[in-house]
Structure formats: C-alpha cells, structure tokens
C-alpha cells in the first residue's frame, strides 16, 4: 500500500486552513491518500473532519491551502471532478416520498458513465427495498441508500462522512461490507469516523485529527505500536488515596498510568508480569481491587495517550 501513495495519489492536501469567525475548524492540515487506499480521518466531534472532507469535496471554501485529487484541482476542472468522485454527506435527508429506485434513477441521470440502478442496489443489499418509499426504510437502509447514491456514478474516489454514526451494530456491519466491496473493486475511499473500531477495521491508513490538526498518522498497526504497549489494564480500587500514579509507572511491565473518573488505566507491555506486580503493589498499600479488566491496546488508547481525552466524550 505504501508504494501506491507514490504511484498516483488519489488526494493530496497541503496546509489546509478554515475558520468560522473565531472558531478555527481546520488548522494547517496535510493529507496524502494513495490510489486504491481506504483512508480514515479519526477524531472526536468538532475535530474538523467534516469541514476537511467538505473542502476536499468542493462544497466548502477554504481559507488557504491546496487540494488536489485524481491529478486535478477544483479550480481547473470542477465538472470532470464531479463526474469522478462520489459523496455521502454527514446528514442528508433524501426525499421521503420517493422510492429507493426513483432516487437512484435521479442520481444516475447526472453522470456520464453510471452504473445500472440494479447493480448498485445489489452492492448495498437493498434489492428487496427497490420499490419501497424512503419513509419506510430503517436508519441503516437509508444510510446504505445514501452510499448507493454516491456509488451510482461509478466513482474513482469515494468520500463518506460518518457513514455509520447512529446505526445499530448489525447495520454497521452491513455498511462495512458495502465499503469493503467498493474497496475490493480497486478504488479509493476517504472516510471520517469517531469510532476507533471502524477505523481499525476498514482503513489502510488513518490520520487522527484533533482541533483541526493531524496529531498522528499511519496504519492502525503502526499507530497502536507507537504506544509501546500491547495491552491495557483498567482497575478500580477502594483505597484510591493510598495509590500513587508515579509508583504505578515504576512497576514491572507498566509503561504509563493515568487516573480517569475513578478508574486507573495502565499501558502494559507484558501482561504476565504486569498483573502480578500490580496485585502485589495494591496488597502492599492495603487497597483492595473492586474491578480489573485488561484488553489489547486500540486506537482509542492511542488517542487518549496523545490528548488525555476520549474520542467519544459526550
């Protein structure tokens, strides 16, 4: 995948900035998305993901910076770019009174070399709903239809803004299948999400965005490896007063420790050494455990270690 970045870039963004009054939404952001790559912008609400992606889509004006995709800029050839990209916005309500097929036929009519409606219906698994009014669709079905509208023009580059936000787990998995299939056809995807599991599952490479800047980038594996810890230990204790974060960090196999809303999180390298060391320490302080959990390190842990905050604060 790394080689693909140099072969021909799907999207190149340099020094992007955008403010709304006093609010700096995007603050000097760079991106490189390779051909055939699924690239994720991961960050909490308000990080500037939507603003960034909508500037790339040519829907929002930027204050400064450069955007080039598929070898062109919006200033050079907006019509050709519109033919070659597919877009699903964060929030669009398609017209309730139309059916699924009618909606797709409308979007299809805008493109020079579109797919057949039936082809896209199969891609997003909405064949049975082809003649149903949009008002009768579930949230997940509506969201897949929105993606179908982005796919109908046979795009080379697909932009998806929060494709699974608000969906139940089963609908999310169906959406992931749709995205996987598009990726398998050899095109590029830029998606935004605030779900770390989604980014980890779907994306070849990720940029973690916070306050309008990229604070880390790489493959999910690289990002997690950058923690230097494979495991996370979380525990709660009745004897909080007796526990010292500095001492925790000194324990064998423990790399870092933090206290968050009464729960301690420890980054650990070797669980089989770290857990006994922790138990011995707590026993020596007379602080009995009330809860103990361990899990493999995730992108969420990367975000917490970088910012001290969680991806989903609200």
């Amino acid at each position: 995948m790394q080689a693909a970045v140099h072969k021909s870039a799907a999207l190149v963004v340099r020094g992007l900035r955008k403010s709304y009054g006093d609010v700096v939404a995007v603050d000097g952001l760079d991106l490189d998305v390779g051909a055939q790559e699924c690239f994720g912008l991961l960050g909490p609400n308000g990080a500037g993901k939507t603003t960034t992606i909508e500037i790339c889509e040519g829907l929002v004006d930027r204050d400064s910076g450069d955007v080039e995709m598929l070898g062109r800029t919006w200033e050079q050839d907006p019509k050709a770019l519109r033919q070659r990209i597919g877009i699903s916005l964060q929030e669009t309500q398609l017209s309730d009174k139309l059916t699924v097929r009618e909606t797709l036929a409308l979007f299809r009519s805008f493109y020079e070399h579109p797919h057949d409606v039936s082809h896209v219906l199969a891609q997003v698994q909405l064949e049975e709903k082809a003649n149903a009014r949009i008002s009768t669709l579930s949230g997940g079905q509506k969201q897949r239809l929105a993606v179908a509208c982005a796919l109908i023009g046979d795009p080379e580059l697909l932009f998806l803004d929060e494709p699974t936000t608000g969906l139940d787990p089963q609908s999310r998995r169906q959406m992931w299948d749709v995205i996987d299939k598009f990726r398998a056809s050899g095109h590029s995807i830029v998606l935004t999400t605030h779900y770390m599991d989604e980014a980890e599952r779907l994306c070849d490479r990720i940029a973690i965005v916070d306050h309008g800047r990229v604070i880390a980038r790489g493959t999910p594996r690289e990002l997690i490896a950058s923690l230097g810890a494979e495991q996370m230990i979380e525990f709660a204790s009745e004897g909080t007063a007796a526990i010292d974060l500095g001492e925790l960090r000194q324990l064998e196999g423990i790399i870092d420790a933090r206290l968050d809303a009464g729960t301690y999180s420890l980054q650990a390298k070797e669980l089989h050494r770290a857990v006994p060391a922790l138990l011995a320490y707590l026993a020596s302080r007379g602080a009995p455990l009330t809860e103990l959990k361990t899990h493999s390190a995730t992108l969420e842990d990367v975000f917490v270690s970088l910012t001290g905050r969680h991806l989903r604060d609200e």
Binding site: L59, R82, Q83, I87, L89, F107, Y111, C149
Partner: peptide, 14 residues
C-alpha cells in the same frame, strides 16, 4: 432544510 440541495450540487447535476 434536508441538505438535499447541498447533496445535489455535490453531483455533476446541471
């Protein structure tokens, strides 16, 4: 209101 206008100009619609 439904952001459909924005969605439409995101396509090559005339």
């Amino acid at each position: 209101r439904k952001r459909l206008l924005k969605r439409l100009i995101a396509t090559p619609m005339s």
